[in-house]
Design a protein around this nucleic acid. Structure first.
Lengths: 355, 355
DNA sequence: TTCCAATTTGCATCCGTATGCAACACGGTG
DNA sequence: CACCGTGTTGCATACGGATGCAAATTGGAA
């Protein structure tokens, strides 16, 4: 149907190499006097083909610059070698780093990353419908945004899905998350060691599991240690400005020794507000800690004490889950908790190690 | 070949809804007593089909949750509706913002983004070979990393390619870039107005066109204004630490009134180094300006004067190029320069507008 | 030398959708 | 009533590669 007619009648199309269509396995096979199956097998590791034939085909393929068409391959095999990555907030510097490492690791084992940037508010199903149509092999969700388990199940439609830093129980979704409770308790312990007694918590997105775990872990440990929770600010976003506003609110009451922000971006906004707007000194007047350990937390001006997420390990585990038997992921959704590390810096009066 | 045999003999497979394969157009057609073509046409805008038939098919399709398989569609049409995005540095906060806006705009017109995260140093052709095999409709390159025009031409293989913030002349690649010369001159003018006379330039990646343009524009304008170029630091990366080191080097010579860093991340590292390590006051002792206007530049501690890149406009232009006749892009590669905006803040002693 | 097993190769068909072309339906005109 | 044009519909095949099965080849054992 397409482009029948004699191949080179209308003269060389303008634009030179531009409209030249890539060579196909059949053409390559005909040139070599072998069958198309042979070409396909030459490119399939472990296929039943003689070593010398394979070599001859691959050599010639390299010469004429043949590469198997991935689309056709996807159609006949069940695999697409594409992983869908669902993201909603690339502004928080924690995520770009994670996405970068993740996509690099996937590339290393021959998987590509198809990015789905969902916008909260508008029609989620519509945004995710492409996720179904593209037949991705698996889905990785790196999104703090509201995304119900049922919507997600619909979108992934029987494909393995792995949530990073979000935990949903009721569905067949796997989760890989940092041990938020452990981290929050470590911050509480650290505050206590540094002498704080009246402490505050600043939430990110209140309803997210991540926030709830950090909040509960912190508040519980605070109580165990006999400290006072002097303030607790609800939040609607993980952002610099939200941190600023929360810090000002807490500073106005003048009854807090230390603030634990649900993540680093909040904490950094908080530090700036405390110093520039509230006239407080950090850590002299008030201690501040965050969560994640984004690059800015290490900048000298902030020097933010934080709980470092094990990004490399998270990536490793996720990639292993995908690399392994993905159908196993479907049968038994697993939740994996990874340990992080308390990074003590000057924002809580600690003396950090030399860089 | 696959899954022949009677459909429901071996009982419901374990895992419930998990392994159920999605319905196909043919099955849907048979259920409705129409031809598969009809189903295809019902989902093709502008196809030759009666309105009531289309409605009936779409309604039933919605009921049984049928959606056309994108892979099969890609194979028969020439379009994949996938845009390859080549990235190399997600750490610089300017890029995540750009990528996010870009992928959202593309999604809005039904295009998905396939992410290619290239690592400098290792084999580029190998990394980009997937770009060819996946038949992407177009390629957008957002990468400061070394990537020769010829490598890129090979990788895109007759597909339209658009470079953002990089200009390559010799090939048939389109470019959309900020007017770096204009921006650099604006910074120079601003320095002059603020009373600086001995100024320094800190390069990012020296050989990139972006850096060269900013450098030349700045140095040229400096000379025109009769100012002295007191230092010029070569660079191997656009990073916080590179900015730190450069700033310390310049501060040690004590002969500079103002520093123009090739981008904001460098400038921010520079400010921190000047204040925390060199004991200088910014802007009292030395003025600092950057380029890009990343979020951190607006944070009160930095309050960085910078030249804002017209991100929204860049995205708009790129998407328009892709949305329009892409083959036109191939025939006539165009380079588009967009104007940015000088943002005067306190790092150069300016009084910023109230937030 | 004969026969069988193991390995290699090719043939035919499938994956699921798009589309050129022919067939068909319907309404109006001469 | 024959004829034609417009608008719909279905048939058949193409897209490019993967793979079950049968055929062909090879080597070695009896």
């Amino acid at each position: 149907m397409r482009k029948q007619g004699s191949p080179s009648l209308q003269g060389e199309p303008p634009g030179d190499a531009l409209s030249r269509k890539p060579i196909t396995a059949r053409e390559l096979a005909r040139m070599l006097g072998v069958s198309q199956s042979a070409v396909s097998r030459a490119f399939t590791p472990g296929a039943s083909i003689a070593a010398d034939l394979r070599e001859r085909i691959l050599k010639y393929a390299a010469e004429v610059d043949y590469q198997p068409n991935a689309i056709a391959s996807m159609l006949s095999k069940s695999r697409t070698n594409i992983i869908g990555i669902v993201v909603s907030d690339m502004q928080n510097p924690f995520y770009p780093g994670l996405i970068e490492k993740l996509s690099r690791s996937l590339q290393r084992i021959g998987l590509q990353s198809l990015l789905f940037n969902i916008t909260k508010g508008s029609n989620l199903e519509e945004q995710l419908s492409a996720l179904r149509r593209y037949n991705v092999d698996a889905v990785i969700v790196i999104s703090a945004t509201i995304l119900s388990g049922s919507t997600l199940s619909w979108a992934t439609e029987g494909r393995p899905a792995i949530l990073i830093n979000r935990v949903i129980e009721d569905t067949n979704l796997s989760c890989v998350a940092c041990n938020n409770v452990e981290g929050a308790r470590a911050i509480a312990d650290h505050f206590h060691r540094q002498g704080a007694r009246r402490v505050a918590y600043v939430a990110g997105l209140s309803h997210t599991t991540t926030n709830r775990e950090r909040q509960n872990g912190f508040v519980t440990r605070i109580a165990e240690l006999g400290m006072t929770l002097s303030a607790q600010i609800e939040g609607r976003e993980y952002s610099y400005n939200a941190g600023r506003r929360a810090a000002l609110e807490i500073a106005a009451r003048k009854s807090t020794d230390a603030i634990f922000f649900a993540n680093d971006i909040l904490a950094i906004g908080g530090i700036d507000a405390l110093r520039e707007e509230a006239g407080c000194r950090v850590p002299d007047d008030i201690l501040v800690a965050g969560f994640d350990d984004i690059p800015m937390a290490g900048w000298p001006h902030y020097n933010l004490t934080t709980f470092r997420q094990p990004v490399d390990e998270i990536v490793r585990v996720v990639v292993e889950m995908i690399e392994g038997d993905t159908s196993a992921l479907l049968r038994a959704a697993t939740t994996i908790r990874l340990s992080g590390e308390l990074i003590e810096r000057r924002s809580t009066g600690a003396q950090p190690d030399a860089p």
